[in-house]
Write a protein that binds this DNA or RNA. Structure first.
Length: 934
DNA sequence: TTTATCACG
DNA sequence: GACGTACGTGATAAAG
């Protein structure tokens, strides 16, 4: 909010924002799926542009702003060089009609809009920037176009709206290897193939930067071209000197254009309410209208009071938070929440662990900026944390816990009041422990995950992150309230005046986020994924976590002993073979023993840091050559891993109150829609080796119960067959036989009966490779065969199942166009890096994009099964409860007498969770331990 | 806090 | 023609 302030105006220079409108248009177009307004006109770019413009207007701090567009394709540059930008494809058909509507959008917001025949937007931007500087006005150019980098100088900054960061001289130097003032010279030499700027043959950006660094500028270089040592380069610089000069004229922006509108016209103005409303209504942008109504424009029939724009509210609403210390005040808040229909809640606890943290207080928000905190278990204790008796003050006045529980009970179960939390699964646990159930719920963390996924990296759905990203608001940090490290205190020791500010703010911003994110589900077509898959998972996962799984500590301790003995023996032997003791667990020390002292040759790669790899594949190679030490190290590693990560650690994870292990399932961490499991991770309990598998013997059922394991057979490969529509593969699944053997039979032309196991093994590896986005390198490494041979296998596979190639290309195209791919059920899996200029990073993103609909589709299917399961069990009158999910497997605890009936029902629900063009098949097993049930 | 390794699907 | 890769997770110990 900029207030007229004469003193500030006198000291801080005015600021002008110049927006590269054409850049915005293409970004908006390519980042959004097709959308049309009621009359059929495509408007996805208009919509994206509008929201981007709104965000910019809300965020920027400037007295003047203008959006600059290109006009027509012919400019003065075509007179210099007829082919300039000649190879640019025409704008997409459904984008063309959106150009004029986007001009309307700018005018609807009452923002100046400039374009001029014969000049590019960049020339107008350069001209206005120069004029503004001459008058002492600071300029920010909003664009990520590299051609504008030449403008960067004192008082002229570039801002990349895509990456949300300024582009300064350092970034320019990173891109061009020279400062902004020499960018033009480098571009003139290097040319630009996408714009048909020829440059000088054989010279790229790197070489150009080097030459300019050495010779100062283009003319000096051309004049002294004869001094160049490399003969070809010298010849080219001489021969193509004029072409370089012409290229410079092409890339050099004109800053003396006779612009159609003076700077004075760029003053920031409030939009005309009627015009803005008319524009939004005409284009069907109801959600945008709802956002701006009451803030930028008054609502019809509204005095103009309540702000309805979540962004504006968050930045402007001066929040005053209430401390609730008596029953009457609590009742008023409960009534207010009931009337509001939506209430955000948040709990504060005395420990991080969801299963153990005790309730310290509850906060509620009923409207943006309107929130309260109800302390329940705060202690006294004074300012000093060193409370060695004596100095402690009395505990503050608080509502007794049971009285508060009684007051909240109805509200939290009221089906007409939506309870919103950020990671509300945590609060469900805490509240359950004081006897409070909560329904229905929404979760802003899950909403953010469903909408934005891993687009901006992983772990970016924290409340602090989101408040900053969406509202530019810095939340009070937990450590500012409780400290950190040794001096950290628990929340029940925080004085109430600080506690209320911290706790109520969490509820407040959770509510604001909910208002911002929930409408996006419809706009971005994510309603089904959220409502039928991820939202129902929240209470379900909470009950699974609370159930936990029984673990027998005696079995684990026994195994620990056995493993310790083996580790000790192996350690002695390794040290004897090495001739001296060393830390086997240190890759660095092990590498020295193997490669320096014993002079073994690592046939394998060395890692990034330059150190030689001692990974299992390397050690296996060495062991196969007959070396004992690496063979023993492999055994040592296996037992160390099993002991430290599993047998020792799991005993510590047994909850003393329940005798069970309670994992936390992550619903918002993965790029594909899978769950994750942590603290402890129960999705990676060993199974592949005999010794490791014994750990599963410690996972047991309660007396009178058995564990039921039900897992999907080949679900990912079945999804490949369905999604890529591979006829031969679908047929094979319909016949229900050994899929890898059938694959081998088709590829190698051998009958399934009496097949060489090696052929089947190879086919199996290829089937897995397909799921991962196959490469000859990866397959050759997996099978230890030469790359050429791997390539021939892949070719044979494509020959037999040609549809797979088409799927791979289609998927990559989709990822490149939208930045994400969708699963069968519509979940977006983001593919950051898909257009990376680094071919390595791009390849990685491409393979991930190929894998995502497969892995993510399987994740969607098992989620559907999980959501259906509790009701199906209840209806059948069965007492089983779901305990764990391991990607394609569900583990339930079942009354012994109901084992068979439950197994049949679980299989039916899982197999019916999706209807594909191939059957889904589920295998089940029941036993007293997980080892036997699987 | 980052890196290497290895457990799972 | 070289590049350098199989997809997705989390926990541990070593080392910076």
């Amino acid at each position: 909010m900029t207030e007229p302030d004469s003193t500030a105006a006198a000291t801080a220079p005015d600021r002008l924002f110049l927006v590269d409108g054409s850049g915005y248009i293409f970004r908006a177009y390519h980042s959004l799926p097709p959308m049309t307004r009621p009359d059929g006109t495509p408007v996805n770019a208009v919509y994206g542009f509008t929201t981007m413009l709104m965000k910019l207007l809300a965020d920027m701090d400037a007295e003047r702003v203008a959006v600059i567009f290109d006009k027509g394709r012919k400019t003065f540059r075509n007179e210099i060089h007829p082919d300039y930008k000649g190879h640019r494809p025409d704008a997409p058909e459904d984008l063309v009609p959106q150009f004029p509507i986007i001009r309307d959008a700018v005018r609807a917001f009452n923002v100046a809009c400039v374009e001029m025949e014969g000049f590019e937007a960049d020339d107008l931007i350069a001209t206005y920037a120069k004029q503004a500087r001459a008058r002492g006005i600071d300029v920010t150019v909003v664009s990520s176009d590299k051609d504008l980098m030449q403008l960067v100088r004192d008082g002229v900054a570039l801002f990349d709206p895509m990456k949300n960061r300024p582009i300064g001289p350092d970034q320019v130097r990173e891109k061009f290897g020279v400062g902004p003032d020499r960018v033009v010279d480098v571009q003139a030499l290097a040319g630009d193939s996408s714009d048909n700027v020829p440059g000088v043959p054989g010279i790229g950006v790197k070489t150009a930067a080097q030459l300019i660094e050495e010779y100062g500028d283009l003319e000096s270089l051309l004049a002294r071209a004869g001094e160049i040592k490399q003969p070809k380069r010298r010849q080219n610089l001489t021969e193509f000197a004029d072409q370089a000069r012409m290229s410079r004229d092409l890339v050099l922006l004109r800053d003396d254009v006779d612009v159609p509108e003076p700077l004075e016209g760029f003053d920031v103005r409030q939009p005309d309410p009627d015009a803005l409303r008319a524009f939004l209504v005409e284009n069907g942008f109801k959600s945008v209208l709802a956002k701006v109504e009451g803030d930028l424009i008054p609502k019809p029939g509204d005095g103009g009071g309540a702000a309805a724009d979540p962004v504006a509210e968050a930045t402007s609403a001066a929040a005053a938070y209430a401390l609730v210390q008596d029953i009457e005040a609590l009742r008023r808040w409960v009534a207010e929440a009931r009337d509001a229909d939506v209430v955000a809640i948040d709990t504060e606890t005395d420990a991080l662990s969801a299963m153990r943290g005790g309730l310290v207080g509850i906060s509620m928000a009923t409207a943006p900026g309107r929130a309260c905190y109800i302390p329940l278990a705060h202690k006294g204790g004074g300012e000093g944390q060193l409370d060695l008796g004596g100095g402690g003050t009395e505990a503050p006045r608080q509502i007794p816990l049971d009285a508060c529980v009684a007051e909240l009970k109805d509200l939290l179960l009221n089906p007409g009041v939506l309870k919103v939390g950020h990671n509300i699964k945590y609060d469900l646990h805490v509240l359950a422990r004081v006897g409070l159930e909560v329904a229905p719920v929404d979760d802003t963390m899950v909403l953010s995950y469903v909408l934005d996924g891993t687009r901006l990296g992983q772990g970016t759905h924290g409340l602090d992150d989101l408040a900053e990203r969406h509202f530019g608001h810095a939340m009070i940090a937990f450590k500012d309230v409780c400290g950190s490290g040794k001096t950290q205190i628990t929340f029940d020791r925080v004085p109430l005046d600080k506690a209320v500010e911290y706790a109520a703010e969490d509820a407040d911003y959770t509510l604001r986020l909910h208002r911002l994110l929930k409408p996006r589900l419809i706009e971005e077509r994510m309603v089904t994924v959220y409502e039928t898959l991820d939202r129902p998972m929240v209470p379900l996962l909470a009950t699974m976590e609370r159930a936990g799984i029984k673990v027998d500590p005696a079995v684990l301790k026994d195994l620990s002993k056995t493993f310790a003995a083996r580790i000790g023996d192996l350690e002695d032997e390794v040290h004897r073979l090495a001739g001296h003791p060393f830390n086997i667990g240190s890759p660095k020390q092990l590498g020295e023993v193997l490669f320096d002292e014993m002079s073994l040759q690592s046939g394998r790669k060395s890692s990034k840091t330059g150190a030689k790899s001692t990974g299992a594949d390397v050690l296996e190679d060495l062991a196969a050559q007959g070396h004992d030490l690496p063979a023993r190290v492999l055994d040592w590693r296996q037992f160390s891993k099993l002991k430290s990560t599993y047998t020792d650690a799991l005993v510590e994870d047994i909850n003393p109150d329940t005798g069970r292990v309670h994992t936390t399932f992550g619903l918002t961490g993965t790029s594909t829609g899978r769950l994750s499991s942590n603290d402890p991770n129960l999705q990676n309990i060993p199974i592949r080796t005999e010794e490791g598998r014994r750990i599963r013997e410690a996972f047991v059922a309660e007396p009178g119960h058995v564990l039921l394991s039900a897992d999907y057979s080949q679900i990912e490969l079945r999804l490949v067959a369905h999604v890529a529509d591979i006829k031969a593969l679908k047929e094979a699944f319909h016949h229900g036989a050994d899929i890898h053997a059938i694959t081998a039979s088709r590829m190698f032309g051998e009958p399934v009966e009496g097949m060489d196991p090696m052929l089947r093994r190879r086919a199996k590896a290829i089937n897995f490779g397909i799921i991962y986005g196959i490469s000859a390198f990866g397959l050759s490494r997996q099978l230890s065969i030469p790359r050429g041979e791997a390539q021939r296998f892949i070719d044979a596979y494509f020959q037999e199942f040609p549809e797979i190639l088409d799927y791979m290309e289609r998927t990559k195209d989709e990822a490149r166009k939208h930045g994400f791919v969708r699963t069968l059920f519509g979940r977006k899996c983001w593919a950051p890096g898909i257009n990376d200029k680094n071919p390595n990073a791009r390849g990685l993103a491409e393979r991930a994009a190929i894998n995502a609909p497969i892995q993510g589709g399987a994740a969607d299917i098992i989620k559907r099964a999980m959501v259906k399961l509790p009701d199906a069990l209840t209806e059948a009158g069965l007492g089983a409860r779901l305990l764990l999910q391991v990607h394609d497997e569900l583990i339930l605890e079942v009354p012994e007498a109901e084992a068979d009936q439950t197994a049949a029902l679980v299989r039916k629900v899982m197999e019916g969770a999706a209807s594909l063009s191939v059957p889904l098949v589920v295998d089940t097993g029941t036993a007293g331990t997980w080892a036997e049930a699987h």
